[in-house]
Write a protein that binds this DNA or RNA. Structure first.
Ligand SMILES: [Mn+2]
Ligand SMILES: [Mn+2]
Ligand SMILES: [Mn+2]
Ligand SMILES: [Mn+2]
Lengths: 137, 137
DNA sequence: CATGATCCGTAGCCATTGCTACATTTAAAA
DNA sequence: TTTTAAATGTAGCAATGGCTACGGATCATG
């Protein structure tokens, strides 16, 4: 008789899929925010924002341009496509819910900001709804 | 007058650091669990568990061996070092808290299992404490 | 004890995201 | 207008974690 292991592979597959979207989500949100704050979004603004080199940003911006999330021309500011803006709004809304939820739970702002930056990408629609419900009470 | 952007780089740096630990955390937890359930933990057990190829597992096991988290000899089952067991216990405890928390919040078990698999790695000590407190009430 | 199935390791590919060093473009100052 | 500083791009390296293909080791079974 061979013991069978529970089908735990689904959560891991889902987590890997979410990690694959994480960079795109953070970047479109950052571009939207930087344009709102600075009027435009330059590669170096993103590099400072994420605390990475401008080279890393430049390459990722190129990839997200290929994925139709960002507009970009050499030496020009980065902009959002229609698709990118839609994603940015959705992601920012979710991020704000997670942040508010953690603070409502009693976590200080500093730690809520740190943890929510990672947690946001792993919050599915059901969990997001539960957090919103909690916030209403 | 130049507008200055808030220091948002800290959360992103922290999130990247946590992602760097994620594989190690999931693997030691998996090894502990598979040994508990099957008596031993083989490379292929881990491959099935994570839904990846045995090659991916083999390379990662080697790296975690170099980091003194796992014991491994060619063609032998994988075991935990003292350090690995300590980490596994800590990680499993945190994972269970996150899972129970999500379910207490009203998320169904299936989605709670999926989301907690990613969220766990981004839950700092403050957030973990807040979740435990919530569960006590 | 032979052998075939299963398990595991190795070679080698790709994508992603970090980095430094250097080249080029753009924009500001002299 | 020339010159210099800042911003951006390019080349090339490393680590990580996916994969397939193939070969060698182990073990159960005949
Ligand atoms: Mn965000
Ligand atoms: Mn984030
Ligand atoms: Mn996990
Ligand atoms: Mn994550």
């Amino acid at each position: 008789m061979v013991k069978k292991v529970k089908a735990r592979s689904v959560p891991f597959s889902q987590t890997r899929a979410r990690h694959a979207n994480e960079t795109a989500e953070d970047y479109v949100e950052a571009v939207m925010e930087l344009i709102a704050e600075l009027g435009e979004c330059r590669v170096l603004d993103l590099a400072r924002y994420f605390n990475v080199s401008h080279v890393t940003v430049s390459r990722i911006v190129k990839r997200l341009h290929d994925e139709n999330l960002l507009h970009t021309m050499p030496y020009k500011p980065v902009e959002l496509t229609v698709e990118g803006l839609k994603l940015a709004k959705r992601v920012k809304d979710r991020h704000l819910v997670v942040l508010a939820f953690l603070m409502e739970l009693g976590v200080d702002k500093t730690n809520a900001e740190i943890d929510s930056e990672g947690i946001e990408h792993h919050v599915g629609s059901k969990t997001l709804a539960a957090m919103k419900k909690f916030l209403k009470k």
